[in-house]
Simulated assay, not measured.
Amino acid sequence: MMMNLFSIFDPSTNIFNLSLNWMSSFLGILLFPMIFWFTPSRMTIFWNKIFITLHKEFKMLIGINSFNGTTFMFISLFTFILFNNFLGLFPYIFTSTSHMTITLSLALPLWLSFMMFGWINNTKHMFAHLVPQGTPSILMPFMVLIETISNVIRPGTLAVRLSANMIAGHLLLTLLGNTGNSLSTMLISILIITQLLLLMLESAVAIIQAYVFTILSTLYSSEII
């Protein structure tokens, strides 16, 4: 409660026992434009190397006939999924990529846009893609049916793959963590080590699943050109 007008300048003002009065002195650093930083930070160089590597790989997968700037869309998708996967590893933060609402919202519009573009602009190519080369004539109707079904379920498989992998690891961490109250000191030490190893595994899964989702989306887009 503010007792007088000058109490807002009181250095002892705090929230959750954290003194926040001097934070305003550091907020300006966040607002500096990049031109004021003469040399890029190591973090910037690190991310630039990742983006360049992803750009080269996506460009190779999509092909030389792709539109300019297509790879940046997939790099943005990779970054978005990666950050959401990692945020879910922190306590009390909901993992949005473990929910089908988010994963389907990412996969379904991508797949629909690929299909609309392919069937409108490359109709013959899309029909030819339904029958793999060298298929016997008697099997062609079945191959068309199989290829159609596999094509239709692609957004679902993308969404379920990402959400299921995110849920599985977090669920295992939660179940193991809830058993700690009933364990002895020796078993708790083993449990902590196990949790740390699982956390490292989940960090790797967060990267791999973001990469897999983006690579598969890239491969699906390369089939329509």
Rank of each mutant, 00 (worst) to 15 (best):
residue 138 I to W: 12
residue 121 N to V: 14
residue 128 A to K: 13
residue 133 Q to V: 15
residue 112 L to N: 06
residue 103 T to N: 05
residue 138 I to E: 10
residue 105 S to L: 04
residue 110 L to S: 03
residue 112 L to R: 08
residue 116 M to P: 00
residue 104 L to N: 04
residue 133 Q to C: 09
residue 116 M to R: 12
residue 107 A to D: 04
residue 135 T to C: 06
residue 117 F to A: 11
residue 121 N to Q: 13
residue 104 L to H: 02
residue 104 L to P: 01
residue 106 L to C: 04
residue 128 A to Q: 08
residue 121 N to A: 12
residue 115 M to R: 13
residue 114 F to N: 13
residue 136 P to E: 06
residue 114 F to G: 02
residue 134 G to S: 08
residue 109 P to I: 14
residue 109 P to Q: 13
residue 137 S to N: 10
residue 118 G to R: 04
residue 126 M to C: 07
residue 129 H to M: 12
residue 119 W to Q: 14
residue 115 M to I: 12
residue 109 P to R: 15
residue 108 L to C: 10
residue 102 I to P: 07
residue 127 F to L: 14
residue 104 L to I: 00
residue 106 L to P: 05
residue 113 S to L: 11
residue 122 N to M: 11
residue 125 H to A: 11
residue 104 L to W: 02
residue 122 N to F: 11
residue 101 T to D: 09
residue 107 A to S: 13
residue 131 V to K: 05
residue 124 K to D: 03
residue 107 A to E: 05
residue 110 L to N: 03
residue 132 P to Y: 03
residue 111 W to K: 02
residue 101 T to L: 12
residue 120 I to R: 15
residue 128 A to F: 02
residue 118 G to N: 05
residue 107 A to M: 06
residue 111 W to S: 00
residue 103 T to R: 01
residue 129 H to G: 07
residue 111 W to Y: 05
residue 135 T to A: 01
residue 112 L to Y: 10
residue 121 N to T: 15
residue 124 K to A: 02
residue 105 S to F: 02
residue 137 S to Y: 02
residue 122 N to L: 08
residue 112 L to G: 07
residue 118 G to T: 06
residue 129 H to D: 13
residue 137 S to I: 04
residue 115 M to E: 09
residue 119 W to C: 13
residue 106 L to W: 03
residue 132 P to L: 04
residue 134 G to F: 00
residue 119 W to F: 15
residue 105 S to C: 05
residue 117 F to Q: 09
residue 112 L to D: 07
residue 111 W to E: 00
residue 114 F to K: 05
residue 131 V to Q: 05
residue 122 N to I: 07
residue 125 H to S: 09
residue 101 T to K: 09
residue 107 A to T: 08
residue 101 T to P: 00
residue 113 S to R: 11
residue 125 H to E: 06
residue 123 T to Y: 09
residue 106 L to E: 02
residue 108 L to V: 15
residue 105 S to D: 01
residue 125 H to D: 08
residue 129 H to T: 13
residue 110 L to M: 07
residue 132 P to A: 03
residue 130 L to A: 14
residue 129 H to I: 05
residue 116 M to V: 13
residue 106 L to H: 06
residue 107 A to W: 04
residue 111 W to P: 00
residue 137 S to E: 04
residue 121 N to R: 14
residue 123 T to N: 05
residue 129 H to E: 10
residue 103 T to G: 03
residue 138 I to G: 12
residue 119 W to G: 13
residue 108 L to A: 15
residue 115 M to L: 14
residue 110 L to T: 00
residue 114 F to M: 11
residue 104 L to K: 03
residue 115 M to G: 06
residue 109 P to S: 11
residue 103 T to S: 08
residue 106 L to K: 10
residue 130 L to P: 13
residue 111 W to I: 00
residue 118 G to A: 06
residue 130 L to Y: 11
residue 123 T to G: 03
residue 122 N to H: 15
residue 126 M to E: 09
residue 120 I to D: 07
residue 136 P to T: 12
residue 114 F to D: 05
residue 121 N to F: 13
residue 119 W to M: 15
residue 112 L to Q: 09
residue 131 V to C: 01
residue 127 F to G: 02
residue 115 M to F: 09
residue 121 N to Y: 10
residue 101 T to M: 08
residue 138 I to D: 07
residue 137 S to H: 01
residue 111 W to R: 07
residue 111 W to M: 08
residue 133 Q to M: 14
residue 134 G to Y: 03
residue 127 F to I: 14
residue 112 L to A: 14
residue 121 N to G: 03
residue 135 T to Q: 02
residue 103 T to M: 04
residue 108 L to G: 12
residue 102 I to C: 08
